[in-house]
Amino acid sequence: MTAKPDLSVVIAGIRMKNPVVLASGTCGYGPEYADLIDFNALGAITIKGLLSEPWMGNPPPRLVETPAGLLNAIGLQNPGVDAFIADYLPMLRRYDLPVIVNIWGRTMQEYGEVAARFNDVEGVHALELNISCPNIKAGGMEFGTDPKVAAEVIGLVRKRTRLPLIPKLSPTVHSIALFARVAEESGADAISLINSVPAMVIDIERRRPVLSNGMGGLTGPAIRPIAVRLVWQASRAVKIPVIGMGGISCGRDALEFIIAGASAVAVGTANFLDPGTALRVVAEIEDYLRRHGLASVRELVGTLQFKQGS
């Protein structure tokens, strides 16, 4: 097999050169990484969660290292939609790089308003709907852990946006298959998972949580097996494509997700350790396809050789 394997995928109508995306909140708004890695060689970038107005997030400490991962409670600090469009989007438009914008709201209406704001904006290819952030009280996770509420917010945003819609699912639900189906039936074009896992670290000398927010979201290799299981269950429940993430730091990790059923993958925490991770993952996926004589990465999606007994 000498032909170059085809890495391209189409997710929610977005054409990507390869299935490797930068995860929301780990690559800022673009310029933070643009001089360190080749943006034109990525599958897509996902912008950190945006609200209708600037949002301060949580006080520090916001981050603590954990075994094979980290716990964060940034609290969705962001400059607001308008500042993103004015200050960051023009720079992102210069690249041949699909831009997925992660959005959230404090109320159902606000989700809709933030989404609608992008209808006449050039250079945004899809919206990722964050209904799974563990780090804020209003908004985020409370929209993603009740199927009725999730259906309502996804349905409302669906009506307000012309862009492809990718709800981002919470890992802390009893049945991920149920939420995947709810998303599909409410008009989602794809789903992404997982967001960080609610967790806590305690300073035993002070008998206080290490993070100012008390709890935070666990990410990194520590959560990968949880994420692989959830992606496997979610992808079997729906026809829309799945973007899988959680602890990916090399091609092998990404391939687990793809074999489990993800059509694309996202790299988050590993960007902090090595900004070149996503591009290395691309190269290692290509290498795997070559070794296995596969013409396209699409042939590999959901090919897990396992049938669960009924």
Binding site: G25, T26, C27, G28, E32, Y33, L36, K48, M56, G57, P60, P61, R62, L63, V64, L70, N72, I74, Q77, N271, F272, P275
Partner: peptide
């Protein structure tokens, strides 16, 4: 001196309150 994640401005872990040009408190 702050605990850091990315070190390059992306994760927003290392923030400090400052007064911006308009006198408003920002990170």
């Amino acid at each position: 001196d702050r605990p850091m994640g990315c070190g390059i401005g992306a994760c927003l872990a290392c923030v400090q309150h400052v007064r911006d040009d308009g006198g408003k408190v920002a990170w």
